[in-house]
Design a protein around this nucleic acid. Structure first.
Length: 901
RNA sequence: GCGGGCGUGGCGGAACUGGUAGACGCGCCGGACUCAAAAUCCGGUUCUGGUGACAGAGUGUCGGUUCGAUUCCGACCGCCCGCACCA
C-alpha cells in the first residue's frame, strides 16, 4: 500500500532525491541560480525572433541594501517576465542603477570618502541581494547612470536638445533647498518642502538651465488618452498637473489719473494692463483689477510710493513659504491707477497689487469678478468693492438673486450683462471673445484667445557634484558655448573634497578652467550638474542597446523593443519620473533618437507598499519585532519583550521605516526561509496595487506551503510511477477529478496572471493543492491504473509550471526530482484542455423571489422548459412558495434559476 | 475648497459584463498521531435562534431601479490619496 488511510506518504527510497522529506531552500536556491546563469537563460539578444515583451521595474537607487518594497516590486516583474517567457515571448527584463544623487555626497562628507566608492560598493551589495532573489534578469545589460559610459550619452542628448531649442537658460525664481544647497524642480517640492531633505524651500533668483517640457504640454495631455493600460488615477494626476485651461487675454486701457502725481507718471509710461481669464463671460461683473507683487507695473508704481514698496516686500517674504500662503489672508494695495472697462469707456476699475496673484501664471494680472469667484469675493469683501451677480442659477429669480459671502461658480443664465443677457455661459464666453477680438485698442485687437498650462518648464540645474555635468562652456566673448561633441564626455573630476558646503565642482582648482572651443580664450565650464531625474528619463531606451558606444540609442533596437510593455513601480512617481520620461520620449523623437515611439510605457502598474505593525515600550521607544514574543488569547494579541518580559503596546500598521523600527530585512528572510518564501509572501494576501501587511504568521504560512508543494509533487510522482504512460483513451472518475482540477486551475491562474491578480492566482494554486491532496488521499493503491498514473504525472507537471513564475527555485527542484526533462524555467506554459472542465451535469442554484432555496442538478444540455419544470417541482421550492401561484421562472443559462411568485 | 478612490467575518481579502456573498490564506476551536512537544493530517469557524435538519438577518447608513444589487442610481456618514490662491 502506497498511501496510509489518512493520506500521509511513505517515501520510496529509490525515487531520486524525492526521498528528502524537506525541501532545503538554502542549498537549492544558489544551485539553481548558478545553473540559470551558466546557461545564460535570461540573456536576450537583440536578434531574437520571438514576439517581444519588455518588462521593466523602476530601477533602484543604490542606497545600501534592498528593502521589502524592492522585493515586492521585483518579484511582480519577475512573475510577469517568467510567465511571458513560458508563453513564448522573447522577454527583455533588464536591471540597472539610478546611481547619481545627494545621498552619495552626504555619505562622502560623513565617511571622508568619494561618492563613487560608496555608490559602487552599494551597487555590489544590492546586486548580490537581487541575485539571491532568483530574478530572471538579463544582467548583461546592466547600467549605472553614474558610469561615464552612460552619462556621456546623456551629455550628447543634452546637446541635441539644445540644438533643437528644447534646452535653454534663463534667470528665474527657483525653489532653493537650504539643506541640500541646491535648486529643486516644482515637482520636487512637496507641501513647500524639499522632497529629499524635508527642508522648507526658499525662493531665489538664479540663472538656470531649463528643458522645454511646456512645448509638449498639449501632447503630453492628449497622449494620456492613449495610455489605456495605465491606472486611471495616474492619468488623472498628470492631467491635473499639466493643467490646461482655455481662456482669453484681455487688454485694459489705463486711464489718466488726476489724484496722484506719482501714479500719473506711471500711466504716462504704461498704457495698458493685460489680464488672462477663463471667465470672459463674467466681464460685466468685474469690480477690480489685481496684479502680482512682481508685476512690472507694481514695481513702477512702487518707485515713488514707499508704502506700496513695503507691501510688495511683504508679499515676497510671504511667498517664500507655501505653508504661510495657505492660511494667508487676501491682502491688497490700491495703486491709485484706474482702467477702462473694455465695453464701457466710462466704467473705471481700480488696480490693486494683491498677494494672491502669481506672476508666473497667465499674465500676472487678473480682473476680479467677486460674485462668481470665491477668492475674488473674499478680496472684494475685505476692501468694500462690492459685487454684481451676472450669472443666475436656473432655480433663482434674477431680480432677487444676490451674493453675500459665497460666490456662485455653477451653471446659469447671463444677467445684468447688456448684450450678453439671456445667454448660456459658453455662448457668452464666445460672444465676448468674438467682440473683443474685433475691437481694437491701440492698433491691435483688444483680446486674443489663449490656451494656458499650469505645467512649468523643467529646471534641471543642480549645484551638486554627483550628477551628470552639463556640457557647456561659458566664454566672456562668445557667451554660452556647447562642448563640441568630439570633446565629450565631460568627466567628473575624481579629486574633490566634501569638507565644506557648496558645490565641489565650483571650487575645484583646475577642472572648470578650459579654453573656449570657439575663440580659444580662457573660459569656464558650467559647474552645475543635471537633476538626477534626467538620468532616469531615458534609461529604458538605453537598455535596448546598452552596448552602443557611439550613440545613446540604436534605431533597430528601439524599433524592436519599445515601448515597455509592462512597467512597474511606486505611485510616488506618478508625476515626477513618469511625466519626465514621457517628455523625453517626445523630445528624443524630435531629435531623431527615439524612432517612431510616442509613449515610453504602454502598460503601467503601481504596486503597493509593504507595511508592518509598530511596537512601543513603556517609555514610548520604538521596538523591533525581532525582539518580541507574542501571545494570543481568543482574538486578542499581546506582545512582550523577549529579554525582560515587559509588555509593549501594539501600534498601528505603517510603512516600514528605520525610524519606527518596523523593518524586516530581506537578507534575513531569504537566509531563514529562502527567496521563494519571500517572493510568495509579498504576492499573497492583498491585491498588488494595495499595501501588503508583513506578518510572521504569513511568512511561516508561505514557508509551510513551500514544503507542502514539495511533498505533494512527491506524492503525485509516487502515484504516477517512474514510467511515462501513453495517454489512455478512457479516464475513470478518480483520474477525471484530478485532470479537472489541474486544467481548471491552469485556466484560472493564466487569466489571473494576465490581469496581474497575483493574489488570486496564488489562491487558485492553494486550492489546486488542496484538491490534489484530497484526490490522492482518497485513492487506494489497487485503484491506480494507467489513467490515474497519467493524471498524476500530468498534474505534477502542470502544478510545477503554475507556481514556477512565483517560486522558480522550488519549481526547478521539483521538476528535476520528478525526472522531467530540461529546466522548469525553459518549459512552455502548459496548454489547458477546456473540455476537461466541462461536466455532463450542472448544479444550478434555485431562488424563490430572489432568495436561494435549493440546488437543481440537471443535464448540461437541458432546455429552458425542462429546467423550469424541474425547478418548480423541487420540494424546497414548493415549500417556499407557500401555495402562491408561480408568475414566471427566470432561467439564466448556466447561472441561476429564479422562481417568481 | 477641488478632484479621485475605498468601506464585505476576529484579520488580509475573493466574487470577471447585476445571478449561490464570504473563494484562498491567517488566526481561533475541536480531533488524530506522539511518553510529550514540534511538524503533519482531519473537521469546524458571518451573526442570531435551535441538540438538529432548519429558520431569520447580513457587504458603512438611508432610499431607488430590478425577478434578482457587494456590483447600477441618489443622499448621507467614515477613512485614504492627489492638487490647492492657476485667474
Amino acid at each position: 500500500m502506497l498511501f496510509t488511510p489518512k493520506g500521509s506518504f511513505i517515501f520510496n527510497r529509490l525515487t531520486l532525491s524525492m526521498d528528502q522529506e524537506r525541501y532545503n531552500a538554502r542549498e537549492a536556491e544558489p544551485k539553481w541560480q548558478k545553473i540559470w546563469e551558466d546557461a545564460a537563460l535570461f540573456q536576450t539578444g537583440n536578434g531574437d525572433s520571438r514576439p517581444k515583451y519588455y518588462v521593466l521595474e523602476m530601477f533602484p537607487y543604490p542606497s545600501g541594501r534592498i528593502h521589502m518594497g524592492h522585493v515586492r516590486n521585483y518579484t511582480m516583474g519577475d512573475v510577469i517576465a517568467r510567465y511571458k517567457r513560458a508563453k513564448g515571448f522573447g522577454v527583455l527584463h533588464p536591471m540597472g542603477w539610478d546611481a547619481f544623487g545627494m545621498p552619495a555626497e552626504n555619505a562622502a562628507m560623513q565617511n571622508k570618502s568619494h561618492p563613487a566608492e560608496w555608490t559602487y560598493a552599494n551597487i555590489a551589495t544590492m546586486r548580490a541581494q537581487l541575485k539571491s532573489m532568483g530574478l530572471s534578469l538579463d544582467w548583461s545589460r546592466e547600467i549605472a547612470t553614474c558610469d561615464v559610459a552612460y552619462y556621456r550619452h546623456e551629455q550628447r542628448l543634452f546637446l541635441d536638445l539644445l540644438d533643437h531649442g528644447f534646452a535653454y537658460r534663463k534667470q528665474s525664481k527657483v525653489n532653493w533647498d537650504p539643506v541640500d544647497c541646491t535648486v529643486l524642480a516644482n515637482e520636487q517640492v512637496i507641501d513647500g518642502r524639499g522632497w529629499r531633505s524635508g527642508a522648507l524651500v526658499e525662493q531665489r533668483e538664479l540663472t538656470q538651465w531649463f528643458l522645454k517640457i511646456g512645448a509638449f504640454a498639449d501632447d503630453l495631455l492628449s497622449g494620456l488618452d492613449t495610455l489605456t493600460r495605465w491606472p486611471e488615477k495616474v492619468r488623472l494626476m498628470q492631467a491635473n498637473w499639466i493643467g490646461r485651461s482655455e481662456g482669453l487675454l484681455v487688454r485694459f486701457a489705463l486711464a489718466p489719473v488726476q489724484t496722484s502725481q506719482e501714479s500719473d507718471s506711471v500711466s504716462d509710461a504704461v498704457s495698458e494692463v493685460e489680464v488672462y481669464t477663463t471667465r470672459p463671460d463674467t466681464l460685466f461683473g468685474a469690480k477690480f483689477i489685481a496684479i502680482a507683487a512682481d508685476h512690472p507695473l507694481a514695481a513702477a508704481c512702487a518707485e515713488n510710493n514707499p508704502e506700496l514698496a513695503d507691501f510688495i516686500a511683504e508679499c515676497r517674504r510671504m511667498g517664500t513659504s507655501v505653508a504661510v500662503l495657505e492660511t494667508a489672508e487676501k491682502k491688497g494695495y490700491d495703486t491709485g491707477l484706474r482702467v477702462h472697462h473694455p465695453f464701457d469707456e466710462n466704467w473705471l476699475l481700480p488696480v490693486y497689487v494683491a498677494n494672491f496673484v502669481l506672476m508666473d501664471y497667465g499674465t500676472g494680472a487678473i480682473f476680479g469678478c467677486p460674485a462668481h469667484d470665491q477668492r475674488d469675493l473674499d478680496f472684494a469683501n475685505a476692501y468694500g468693492l462690492g459685487n454684481q451677480p451676472v450669472v443666475c442659477p436656473p432655480d433663482q429669480d434674477p431680480a432677487t438673486f444676490v451674493i453675500t459671502d459665497k460666490a456662485y461658480d455653477g451653471d446659469g443664465t447671463l444677467i445684468h450683462s447688456r448684450f450678453l443677457d439671456g445667454m448660456t455661459i459658453p455662448a457668452a464666453k464666445e460672444a465676448v471673445a468674438k467682440r473683443l477680438e474685433e475691437q481694437t485698442l491701440g492698433n491691435a485687437p483688444q483680446a486674443q484667445r489663449k490656451i494656458n498650462f499650469r505645467l512649468r518648464d523643467w529646471g534641471i540645474s543642480r549645484q551638486r557634484y554627483w550628477g551628470c555635468p552639463i556640457p557647456i562652456i561659458h566664454c566672456e566673448d562668445c557667451g554660452i558655448v556647447p562642448v563640441p561633441r568630439a570633446d565629450l564626455p565631460v568627466v567628473l573630476p575624481k579629486d574633490v573634497s566634501f569638507d565644506e558646503p557648496g558645490n565641489p565642482l565650483d571650487r575645484h582648482p583646475t577642472w572648470k578652467y578650459v579654453a573656449c572651443p570657439q575663440c580659444g580664450k580662457a573660459a569656464r565650464r558650467e559647474t552645475d550638474t543635471m537633476d538626477t531625474f534626467v538620468d532616469s528619463s531615458w534609461y529604458f531606451t538605453r537598455f535596448t542597446d546598452p552596448w552602443n558606444a557611439g550613440d545613446p540609442t540604436t534605431p533597430e533596437a528601439i524599433a524592436h523593443w519599445l515601448p515597455v510593455d509592462q512597467y512597474i513601480g511606486g505611485i510616488e512617481h506618478a508625476i515626477l519620473h513618469l511625466l519626465y520620461a514621457r517628455f523625453f520620449t517626445r523630445a528624443m523623437q524630435a531629435t531623431g533618437q527615439m524612432g517612431e515611439v510616442r509613449e515610453p510605457f504602454a502598460g503601467l502598474f503601481t504596486q503597493g507598499m509593504v507595511v508592518h505593525e509598530t511596537y512601543r515600550d513603556k517609555a514610548g521607544a520604538w521596538v523591533n519585532p525581532g525582539q518580541l514574543r507574542f501571545e494570543t488569547q481568543g482574538n486578542e494579541r499581546r506582545a512582550f519583550l523577549l529579554d525582560s518580559g515587559e509588555e509593549v503596546a501594539i501600534g498601528p500598521i505603517e510603512k516600514m521605516s528605520k525610524s519606527k523600527r518596523n523593518t524586516v530585512d530581506p537578507d534575513e528572510i531569504i537566509s531563514t526561509y529562502g527567496a521563494d518564501t519571500a517572493r510568495w509572501f509579498v504576492l499573497t494576501g492583498s491585491p498588488p496595487e494595495r499595501d501588503v501587511i508583513w506578518t510572521e504568521e504569513g511568512v511561516q504560512g508561505a514557508s509551510k506551503f513551500v514544503q507542502r508543494l514539495w511533498r505533494l509533487v512527491g506524492e503525485l510522482m509516487q502515484a504516477a510511477g517512474s514510467e511515462e504512460p501513453a495517454e489512455p483513451a478512457v479516464f475513470g472518475p478518480a483520474a477525471s477529478a484530478i485532470r479537472k482540477a489541474s486544467h481548471g486551475a491552469l485556466i484560472k491562474v493564466e487569466s489571473d496572471i494576465e490581469r496581474l491578480h497575483f493574489n488570486t492566482a496564488i489562491a487558485t494554486i492553494h486550492d489546486l493543492a488542496n484538491k490534489l491532496s484530497a484526490s490522492i488521499g482518497a485513492i487506494e493503491s489497487e485503484e491506480i491504473g494507467a489513467d490515474v498514473r497519467f493524471a498524476c504525472r500530468e498534474a505534477a507537471s502542470i502544478l510545477i509550471r503554475l507556481f514556477a513564475p512565483m517560486m522558480p527555485h522550488l519549481a526547478e527542484e521539483c521538476w528535476a526530482a520528478a525526472s522531467f526533462a530540461g529546466l522548469a524555467a525553459q518549459m512552455p506554459w502548459p496548454d489547458a484542455d477546456p473540455s476537461l472542465v466541462v461536466e455532463d451535469e450542472m448544479t444550478l442554484p434555485v431562488q424563490v423571489n430572489g432568495r436561494k432555496r435549493a440546488d437543481l442538478t440537471i443535464a448540461r444540455e437541458a432546455s429552458e422548459a425542462e429546467i423550469q419544470a424541474a425547478a418548480a417541482a423541487l420540494e424546497a421550492v414548493q415549500k417556499a412558495l407557500e401555495g402562491k401561484p408561480v408568475k414566471k421562472i427566470i432561467v439564466v443559462p448556466r447561472r441561476i434559476v429564479n422562481v417568481v411568485a
